[in-house]
Design a binder for these strands. Structure first.
Length: 645
RNA sequence: GCCGGCGUAGCUCAGCUGGUUAGAGCGACGGUCUCAUAAGCCGUAGGUCGUAGGUUCAAGUCCUACCACCGGCACCA
């Protein structure tokens, strides 16, 4: 049975980090698992290469967009290669095959009456390539808080509004369509709130897929990017490939809306079948903190792979993170987990078992059926693990594998083969014990092979098994498949124990070096730690003088009901009546903190109604990104009404 | 403000439809074997199960309110 699924295609505005790695890794494990249970899995990932952002970033480096994205696409491919990740389709949105698919999809939608030409005037975020329908130019972007630019242009629109009921009906009929449940509910409530039509093309940018016969229109990046999943399944020719509809889209929780609302609508409009399931997983945090470029706490995967082996990272992410929830990554936990699970766990069990067979039985698997109790335990474990992996409950499955390992360690201590070997009467019991341990190692190798393909292959080899581990099928996991007389190969530690402190130092050092390498690759100035500020357009002194800033003192302050960010204040700026001002500072300042405080007011701003209250001006405050606002103030005292210039 | 989630041992978390002395892994400490990667095995950790009420013969497990944190929406920056 085919099993076609996808991972997001990653935006080429930066190098791969551990977040990209996580999603793609899950896909890779799923693929190897699907293969093991007898399906023919294929998955798609790739790079999302269009948009103003890429065009600008390339320009800054003096490169063409194509040259720029070539570098980054290669970087992603190189990463997946070094992490043992084998994607079947790596779709670059700048490729001719993808261009064809997008144009074809558009024609389908248009022929079916779901596309129309209209005019759009409004605020556009360059960074997110997003029309901010709720905001105005000059205001910060609702997603990234950068200043929105004013854009007026003729666009093609997609009739998203026509799909409200159809989508809701689909969600209703297929409860498994959006997972996990909490995301499903969020999407449903979003769609119930009503959908507005979507602008799907842009003019004024050359780096994009052209709309056929409609120059200078190019496609909006999201319309473009989502279709990559279809390109991976054969594009316009999807019917002959037999991959579409996809069985699964794996996505990060931040892009669930694009996948669960827009994408199904595009597909319905084009007359294509919908994917069976969309699974939103959580984020990978670093030391329980959100990773972000500005914080400088983004983790790169390659140094970890080089220092500890990529399987160590693969296991960590699969065992430590509950799929769907946010997970945490930390260097110490990584090394600890490695020592506990790999060095002391499976690695040591394999090592002691094989050594004993070498020493006591001439390196040949003894003839025995093994302990029946373990035969049963092993069978139950295999069943449980396969089922858990099938439900993406990797951590649960892995826990069960380790329970089997622990039980086997106990068995060895109970039987004490080193004593049995001295007593000829106990030959059968010794054979049975050694066989049981070796067979457990073999079965665990099978179960672990999707997660740790590379190092498990090494263990497999030491066990003397002739086949390749990625050729294993479920039937090979049955108890007793280890042939008596099979000759073991020399024992070599596959997971040598690591010094926690030393390894952590190496990892951190490696991370810094890798960061530098990526910065050079992307043409970022290495010395210059501070990124260029995203300044508003230049103005003259006359422009500035239009703004009347005044010193005021807060007389009264109270929360606004129904709005947790708003504070309603009376501010005296030296006029007859104090001004009524509503400001979004309630998260940072309590009302009582505000009373008596000197603040800076934009005094000639047109009044505006907020939550039913009139705001006659605004308070000047600074903030970083989405951080809390900090009010502007003075070190020396100054009278109320003073003008700032 | 509305909707949803969540708060259990030092850390990470299990605890399904309520029922004996509340569990696991990691870390720590003590003991022990020696086949093994200073690994394994055994034992110890006494935690008001966020707070306060309530239902019940019985609540971590259900109800209410509140607090903390995390999402989504609204509102705003």
């Amino acid at each position: 049975m085919k099993y076609y699924f996808t991972v997001p295609i990653y935006y080429t505005n930066g190098a791969p980090h551990i977040g990209h790695t996580y999603t793609t890794l899950v896909a890779d494990v799923i693929k190897r698992y699907q293969k093991m249970i007898g399906n023919q899995p294929e998955y798609t990932t790739g790079t999302d290469e269009h948009g103003v952002n890429v065009e600008r970033a390339a320009g800054k480096m003096g490169k063409s967009p194509k040259e720029f994205v070539d570098t980054i696409a290669d970087e992603f491919r190189m990463h997946w290669d070094k992490l043992g990740i084998q994607a079947d389709h790596f779709i670059r949105t700048s490729s001719p095959e993808h261009q064809k698919t997008v144009q074809w999809m558009f024609e389908q939608c248009r022929n079916n009456g779901y596309v129309y030409k209209g005019h759009y005037t409004g605020a556009y975020c360059v960074s997110d390539n997003l029309f901010a329908t709720e905001a105005k130019p000059g205001e910060p972007c609702p997603i990234c808080t950068r200043t929105l630019e004013a854009v007026t242009e003729e666009n093609f629109f997609f009739k998203l509004s026509a799909f409200t009921d159809k989508l809701l009906e689909h969600y209703e009929k297929h409860p498994e369509f959006i997972q996990p449940e909490s995301r499903r509910n969020e999407v449903i409530s979003f769609v119930k709130g009503g959908l507005t039509d979507l602008s799907i093309t842009r003019t004024g940018i050359s780096w994009g897929i052209p709309v056929p016969n409609e120059a200078p229109h190019v496609f909006y990046v999201w319309f473009d990017a989502l279709i990559a999943y279809l390109t991976g399944a054969g594009g316009a020719d999807w019917q002959s490939k037999g991959l579409w509809p996809a069985d699964l889209h794996l996505v990060g929780k931040e892009i669930i809306r694009f996948h669960a609302v827009y994408w199904p609508a595009f597909l319905m409009a084009a007359g294509l079948p919908l994917p069976k399931q969309i699974w939103a997983h959580g984020w990978l945090l670093f030391d329980n903190d959100k990773m972000s470029k500005t914080k400088g706490n983004v983790v790169r995967p390659l140094p970890i792979a080089e220092i500890m082996g990529f399987d160590a990272l693969r296991l960590y992410l699969m065992r430590e993170v509950v799929f769907g929830a946010d997970g945490n990554f930390g260097y110490e936990a990584l090394v600890t987990r490695y020592n506990a699970d790999l060095a002391n766990g499976i690695g040591n069990l394999a090592s002691r078992t094989l050594s004993m067979i070498h020493q006591y039985r001439g390196g040949k698997v003894p003839k025995s059926d093994g302990d029946q109790h373990f035969a049963q335990l092993s069978t139950e474990t295999v069943e449980y693990v396969l089922e858990a992996f099938g439900k993406f409950e990797f951590n649960k499955g892995l826990d069960r594998i380790w329970a089997l390992i622990t039980a086997t360690d106990k068995l060895i201590v109970e039987r004490a083969p080193w004593k049995l070997v001295k007593d000829p009467e106990s030959a059968e019991l010794l054979d049975r014990t050694l066989y049981t341990a070796a067979e457990v190692v073999r079965v665990c190798c099978g179960l672990l092979s999707p997660v740790m393909p590379d190092s498990i292959q090494k263990l497999w080899h030491q066990l003397g098994c002739p086949s390749e581990v990625d050729q294993l099928r479920v039937a090979d996991l049955h108890w007793g498949k280890l042939p008596a007389g099979q000759e073991l190969r020399p024992v070599q530690p596959v997971f040598p124990r690591l010094d926690v402190k030393l390894t952590m130092e190496k990892l951190i050092e490696g991370e810094l070096a890798e960061r530098k390498r990526q910065d050079i690759l992307l043409g970022r100035e290495v010395k210059e730690e501070k990124p260029a500020l995203d300044l508003a357009p230049e103005i003259t002194i006359d422009d500035f003088s239009k703004i009347d800033l005044r010193v005021g003192v807060v007389l009264e302050a109270a929360p606004v009901k129904g709005a947790d960010k708003l504070l309603h204040m009376k501010v005296d700026i030296g006029e007859a009546e104090p001004r009524s001002i509503v400001a979004g500072i309630a998260l940072a300042y309590k009302p009582e903190q505000m009373i008596g405080r000197k603040v800076v007011i934009v005094a000639n701003l047109a009044p505006r109604k907020l939550r039913g209250l009139t705001s006659q001006g605004m308070i000047v405050a600074a903030s970083i990104g989405e951080g809390l606002p900090v009010l502007a103030g003075f070190n020396e005292d100054i009278g109320v009404g003073a003008r700032l210039k």
